[in-house]
């Protein structure tokens, strides 16, 4: 059982986590939902398309416009409250590495703190514990937030991702975060070459075997673009291929831009795995 705030999910359920960026410069949407009303409209759309949760971000992951905690809060806290009000049962996640931001968004109704920079601010775990929020444990190899990777290497990237995220999860449990409210995320592209992200994908079953539910963030990323030599706006098919492989390996939560397509891939893989029945089968059965 996975519990994310007010919602619980069965062990074989897969969840699409829709990206809702309140940024001007994120790599894929490039400010499309920076305005609060546009972001709220995006939430309505992704819910209709099958998203089980939304992930609200106020700071671009890569280098770019400086966004301090006050500005990040201005972009996220009030918006979380609006989403909470309109969608009382929707799981709301906030992508932040700052404890001071985590505290305010939890007060506004956030269910999940997606610590995309892997415990950079150790106090964020305490905030999750204090508010009963779920927490995402991410592998970033100790990188400084927003820092691009450079000449990074690992003896075994999968082992490193497992060791670091599981250690973070155990730290969260010790701090008081509920065991059933923790996810681990290998963090494709973060402090990784494309080779590393491909190996993580290929061997994701090893991460799933830890028993901690696995979140993957694959959507339109550079490892897809470099694999297929495609620009950002042409990576959907590659993203969906990586999504299918990750789902086959047993990942549970999929952070995505394109919701309907992702949901359909997850449903199909779920049927192939035998985790869910086909929608309607009469072929050769009449």
């Amino acid at each position: 059982m996975l519990r994310l705030g007010r919602r619980s999910f069965e062990d074989h359920e897969t969840i699409v986590m829709a990206i809702v960026n309140r940024t001007r410069d994120s790599f894929y949407d490039k400010g499309a939902t920076y305005a609060e009303d546009a972001a709220l409209e995006r939430v309505r759309q992704v819910v209709a398309e099958g998203a089980g949760m939304v992930d609200v971000g106020g700071v671009k992951a890569g280098p770019g416009e400086a966004v301090d905690a006050d500005e990040e809060l201005r972009r996220t806290a009030g918006f979380v409250a609006r989403v909470r009000e309109e969608f009382p049962d929707l799981v709301v996640s906030v992508d932040t590495w700052r404890a001071e931001v985590g505290r305010e968004v939890c007060r506004a109704g956030a269910d999940v703190l997606n610590d995309a920079w892997g415990g950079h601010d150790p106090a964020l775990i305490e905030v999750a514990a204090e508010f009963g929020a779920a927490y995402v444990c991410t592998h970033t190899n100790g990188a400084t937030p927003r820092q691009p990777p450079h000449r990074v290497s690992y003896a075994d990237v999968v082992r490193a991702a497992i060791d670091d995220t599981v250690a973070l999860a155990e730290r969260a449990v010790a701090a008081g975060v509920a065991r059933e409210s923790l996810l681990i995320d290998p963090a494709h592209d973060f402090e990784k070459t494309t080779w590393h992200s491909l190996e993580i994908t290929r061997r994701l079953d090893e991460m799933v075997a830890t028993g901690w539910p696995v979140l993957v963030s694959l959507s339109n990323k550079d490892f897809v673009g470099e694999s297929l030599d495609l620009p950002t706006d042409q990576r959907l098919t590659g993203t969906l291929a990586a999504t299918a492989v990750s789902a086959w390996h047993g990942a549970r939560v999929f952070r995505a831009h394109q919701i309907a397509e992702t949901r359909q891939v997850l449903d199909m893989v779920g049927v192939i795995r035998g985790d869910r029945p086909p929608a309607s089968t009469t072929r050769a059965l009449a």
Partner: peptide, 23 residues
């Protein structure tokens, strides 16, 4: 990080150059 002392081939597919020596 620009001049790592123990760099390893991330592809596992090329010639080995004595890793994990410096890059």
């Amino acid at each position: 990080r620009e001049a790592p002392g123990d760099w390893r081939d991330p592809s596992h597919s090329g010639p080995v150059h004595g890793e994990p020596l410096s890059l």
